[in-house]
Design a protein around this nucleic acid. Sequence first.
DNA 1: GTCTATACACCGATAGAC
DNA 2: GTCTATCGGTGTATAGAC
Lengths: 190, 190
Amino acid sequence: MKPSENKILAAAHDLFREYGYNGTSMKRVVEASALTTGSVYHFYPGGKVELAAAVIVEAGGAYQKLFEQVLDGCPTVLVGLETLFQQGGVMLASTDYIDPCPIGGIAREVANVEPKLREACDLAFNGWIDSGTRRFIAAGLEATVARDMAMLFITTIEGGFLLARTARDPEPLLAAGRAFCAAFRSQLRR
Amino acid sequence: MKPSENKILAAAHDLFREYGYNGTSMKRVVEASALTTGSVYHFYPGGKVELAAAVIVEAGGAYQKLFEQVLDGCPTVLVGLETLFQQGGVMLASTDYIDPCPIGGIAREVANVEPKLREACDLAFNGWIDSGTRRFIAAGLEATVARDMAMLFITTIEGGFLLARTARDPEPLLAAGRAFCAAFRSQLRR
DNA sequence: GTCTATACACCGATAGAC
DNA sequence: GTCTATCGGTGTATAGAC
């Protein structure tokens, strides 16, 4: 990837997280990437939709990698999950409660309006669901329960981000995380 | 409430759900309410922000009432929760997967940009959290667990809406709902 | 690949007659 | 309370020189 392309992608990523999809103008992306309109449309001839799709693909891969790396670095999957909720809370507080996840934000905003973006978000979520399901099975959960728990994990993270940002307090994310981890523990003991 | 005011509120409610906050123009609200710019700004002199705040207050109360009524109409709280997830899935499929909750949508979109809307959403969410906590305590959960579970319930609903809309399939909401209800059941048995 | 300039539609909000 | 007309600004995207 060319350096200019990377600057555009990074600028768009940050702006979408802070102002949302419709709240971010291409002009702002141009300014934040320290380039010009012509360059941005050179790399993303499909305009704003194509740019957002690229952000979604990149962020989807990055978060899946983070999820797996944190679990790999912890003694048990349960400890890894607890760590992820903790880290999420710290990140929220240290970034002024900006949306940590452009995928969920864009999906919620334009799922019914921009089919290409909905599909890109769907792909990213499915990657997470599959990754989570595999890890939870490896941790000892029964297959169908593992998939349900993977879905619950993502809803807890996404919903927890939402409540914590709204409250400007990590507590709702941590509370939902505690309840999720208790549920995970109780499924392990069967 | 005057009939014109009601028309404006209903139109804005529907448009915010389908197109989001920034994706909804005042002009569209004017058209959808079959009134004029002057009338809309007469009832909401604070403009778009004030209108959105009114939508949030109304929807927050309506959903809290729905939550409590469904629980009241079911033999146990657990059955009530299962019913809520089921009903949510049916609603999504029958409304082309439009966002069921303008509060979560607006909060996610502008929590960092419009303090008044963030506060209105926070108030609505806190009402739900308190209501859920009370109901869960009454169902037999220990007080601190009940509050965590109330938070988890809301994150599961909001996150489940997000995943189901993105997939255009109720299944992620139902899967997360199954996992949540299993967790609730296991907390009852202590 | 990068730049400037610009086309053209739409935005939120206001003014002031009735 | 309701209406029409309109202000000033911004939106996405394109054109065409370098």
